[in-house]
Simulated assay, not measured.
Amino acid sequence: MQTLRLTAEQVETAAEILRRGGLLGIPTETVYGLGANGLDAGAVGRIFAAKGRPQDNPLILHIPSADWLERYCEDIPPSAYALAERFWPGPLTMILRHKPIVPDAVTAGLDTVGMRCPAHPVCRAIIAAAGVPVAAPSGNTSGRPSPTNMADMLEDMDGKIDGIVDGGPCAVGVESTIIDLTCVPPRLLRPGGITLEQLREVLGEVAVDPAVTRLMGEGEKPRAPGMKYRHYAPKAPVTVVQGAPAAAARYIQDHMAPGDGVICFDEYAGLFDGHPLEQLGPSTDVPEQARRVFDALRWFDGTDVQQIWAQCPEAAGIGLAVANRLNKAAGFHIVQAE
């Protein structure tokens, strides 16, 4: 299969790929997604095949505006519209009860579905032109770091999908926040571009699912993407070092072996001369760390490092999302620097 490279102006060509059941790489403000007609079970099935994605890992439906919610969801609580008014279009996914029109291929057999209205204007224009909701996980081979530009997605998907739209680099860099609105109190299932603190400003009490900070067990069924499986991982094993930045840098210095790779804050790059290294950004600029984290993880697959050490921001604000992605990349192999 030849994968078409489309510009941001080729909205109708992109929409036609979706309407006829094809697979399309779409830009969003979070990461690039692998999209298909979310009402076509056969097309959705091809997403799983292209990614090598486990069938029990549900997908998110992307819509161009909140007024599409009632087409696909029922028992929609007022809190959903309050969140949509505050954060849509934007990096927020809401878990809601779905109508029968949504196929099991999207929901992994659950009675709920994740709904999101992305902020990227090209993405919304394509969905609106296609006239269907777009089911779309991140556009990487399952388990690998998510792509934040077209070139990274083509590295995994060239020849496997019908087309990809170049919408430029992603502004947020980590996937959307996922909040479950079918339970009381609402539950954060995945941290992302909308922070836990922002959610609590609108919703009041918000619980945090244990899967945010640990691996799910074998018998646990994920209610949203990214909860159960090791994700975002480069080929080499990752060790996350938590703690004050200076202490974490010293710990890595003391424990790394020759040739090990390092992901570190900019201020500490000079400590690791001679080692393959990717910088996350300044220790105080967590939004920049979010934009760089997947690129940093993916870069090491072009090296022969046997081990990667990663500094980690404090788990507050969007730092919770960055820490979650690093911890999942490490399979929650975490050490604490004194």
Results as ranks from 00 to 15, higher is better:
Cys73Trp: 03
Gly38Phe: 01
Cys117Pro: 08
Ala119Met: 10
Thr107Met: 06
Met150Arg: 13
Ala296Asn: 12
Arg86Phe: 11
Gln306Cys: 12
Ala135Glu: 08
Asp166Gln: 02
Phe294Gly: 02
Leu326His: 12
Glu338Lys: 14
Pro225Gly: 02
Ala136Thr: 03
Asp104Ala: 15
His333Leu: 09
His62Thr: 07
Gly25Phe: 04
Glu201Pro: 04
Met115Asn: 02
Gly317Leu: 09
Leu69Asp: 00
Gly168Asn: 04
Thr28Ser: 11
Pro58Leu: 10
Asp180Pro: 11
Leu6Tyr: 10
Ile76Phe: 10
Ile318Tyr: 08
Gly159Gln: 06
Ile60Asn: 08
Gln306Ile: 00
Val174Thr: 04
Leu24Gly: 10
Val322Ser: 09
Lys228Asp: 12
Thr177Asn: 03
His98Leu: 04
Val202Glu: 06
Ala316Ser: 15
Pro258Val: 12
Cys117Asp: 06
Gly45Cys: 05
Val44Asn: 09
Leu59Glu: 12
Thr30His: 03
Ala257Gln: 14
Gln253Phe: 09
Pro147Glu: 10
Ile263Asp: 05
Thr239Cys: 13
Ala105Asp: 09
Glu85Trp: 04
Ala247Trp: 00
Gln307Val: 05
Gly159Asn: 02
Asn140Ala: 08
Val238His: 07
Pro287Gly: 07
Asp295Met: 10
Phe294Val: 03
Val11Asn: 08
Thr13Ile: 15
Asp156Gly: 07
Ile127Phe: 07
Gln198Phe: 03
Pro287Phe: 07
His62Leu: 07
Ile308Asp: 12
Met256Gln: 15
Val208Cys: 02
Gly22Leu: 05
Ala15Asn: 07
Asp285Val: 00
Val113Leu: 00
Ala171His: 14
Ala50Trp: 05
Leu24Cys: 08
Ile179Pro: 05
Arg291Pro: 07
Thr284Trp: 08
Glu155Ser: 13
Pro245Lys: 10
Pro287Val: 04
Thr7Asp: 11
Pro237Ser: 12
Val134Asn: 04
Pro186Lys: 01
Asp158Leu: 12
Glu155Gln: 14
Leu271Val: 01
Gly131Ser: 11
Gly33Pro: 03
Glu175Arg: 00
Asp166Lys: 05
Glu314Asp: 14
Gly168Ser: 10
Asp56Cys: 03
Ile95Phe: 08
Ala257Phe: 08
Pro89Arg: 09
Gly259His: 10
Met157Asn: 00
Pro186Gly: 04
Gly25Arg: 01
Ala105Ser: 15
Leu69Tyr: 14
Ala296Gln: 03
Val286Pro: 07
Ala136Gly: 01
Arg53Asn: 03
Arg144Ala: 10
Ser142Asp: 08
Pro237Glu: 14
Leu326Phe: 04
Arg298Ala: 13
Arg214His: 13
Asp156His: 01
Ile126Arg: 14
Ile17Tyr: 02
Leu83Phe: 00
Val335Tyr: 01
Ala296Arg: 09
Ala246His: 07
Lys328Ser: 12
Thr3Ile: 04
Ile334Cys: 05
Pro222Asp: 01
Pro145Cys: 05
Ile161Ala: 11
Gly217Ala: 10
Glu70Asp: 15
Asp301Glu: 09
Gly22Met: 00
Phe332Arg: 13
Ala128Lys: 13
Gly163Ser: 13
Gly192Tyr: 04
Asp152Leu: 11
Leu181Cys: 01
Ala14Met: 02
Leu154Val: 13
Ile101Gln: 05
Glu85His: 12
